[in-house]
Simulated assay, not measured.
Amino acid sequence: MLKLMKAIICYLSYSGNTEEIAELIKDHLETSGYVVDMYMIGFGAVPDLSTYDKLFFGTFTWDRGSTPDEMKDFAREVGYKPENVYVFGSGDTQFGGDDLFCGAVDRLVKFYNCNYDGLKIEQSPRGSQEKIVSKWIEGVLENGESKNIRP
């Protein structure tokens, strides 16, 4: 019997950019046969993450390369470090340049000991950046090696 693969996308978004990335990831996963749940961080109890095959955590980067407090609270609420985490996020190079760009993504990848590099998107994933999202998620699904993918 074929097992249904399940994924959850937990994300934090103020401007909508990270939410747009989450939606693109969701569409790609569903096209690949996954059952996908979405959880907007800060709205309701944290779901039981142990029931999912893949966990996607998304955040924006705040205040000169910082991780938003809500994302830190989410990590505390989860209470453990799952092994099957993939991190994505949005950022803006005009606030600190490349050194601080999507610093929250880098911190979460390190915190969760991810075996796959995080996805970093400059502001909105629209246009040519949609291809970057697709390439990243294809790599995640293939469990291949990754390099940080940027435009």
Rank of each mutant, 00 (worst) to 15 (best):
G91Q: 05
P82A: 04
E142H: 12
V109R: 04
A104F: 03
I21E: 02
V35P: 02
T67Y: 08
I8G: 01
S32L: 11
A45L: 14
H28A: 14
W136C: 01
V78S: 10
D98K: 13
S32H: 07
Y116Q: 02
G16Q: 03
Y112G: 00
L119R: 02
Q94W: 14
T93C: 09
I8Y: 01
L29F: 06
E30M: 04
I41T: 03
E142A: 12
G33S: 10
L55D: 02
D106Y: 11
S146A: 07
V87I: 12
L108H: 10
E77K: 15
L4D: 10
T59H: 01
A45H: 13
M1P: 12
P47W: 01
S90H: 06
L141W: 07
T31M: 12
R107V: 14
L24Y: 08
K135L: 14
D27H: 13
Y116E: 07
L108C: 09
I137T: 04
Q129F: 10
I121H: 00
T59S: 00
F60V: 10
V140W: 06
N84Y: 04
I9A: 06
E83A: 11
A104S: 04
F88W: 03
S90G: 00
G33K: 04
E130F: 08
K120L: 03
V78F: 06
K131N: 15
Y39G: 03
V46H: 02
K54S: 07
E122G: 05
K131D: 14
C10G: 05
K147Y: 14
T51G: 13
F57N: 05
E20R: 13
K54D: 06
S124C: 11
I137Q: 01
G65V: 05
K54E: 06
G65I: 08
Q129N: 14
G91E: 07
T93I: 14
T18N: 05
K54I: 06
S128F: 12
N17Q: 02
R64T: 13
E30G: 07
S124D: 13
M40H: 12
K135F: 11
D48Q: 08
M1A: 14
G127A: 01
N84L: 02
F60L: 08
V36D: 00
R107Y: 13
K120A: 01
S15R: 09
F74S: 00
Q94C: 15
T93G: 09
C10R: 01
S50A: 07
T61Y: 03
R64L: 15
K6H: 08
E30D: 08
M71C: 07
L29M: 05
K110G: 13
M40D: 13
Y86R: 06
H28Y: 13
E70V: 05
K131Y: 10
F74M: 10
G118A: 02
Q123E: 15
F60W: 09
S66P: 09
E142F: 07
S90F: 04
R126I: 12
Y52S: 07
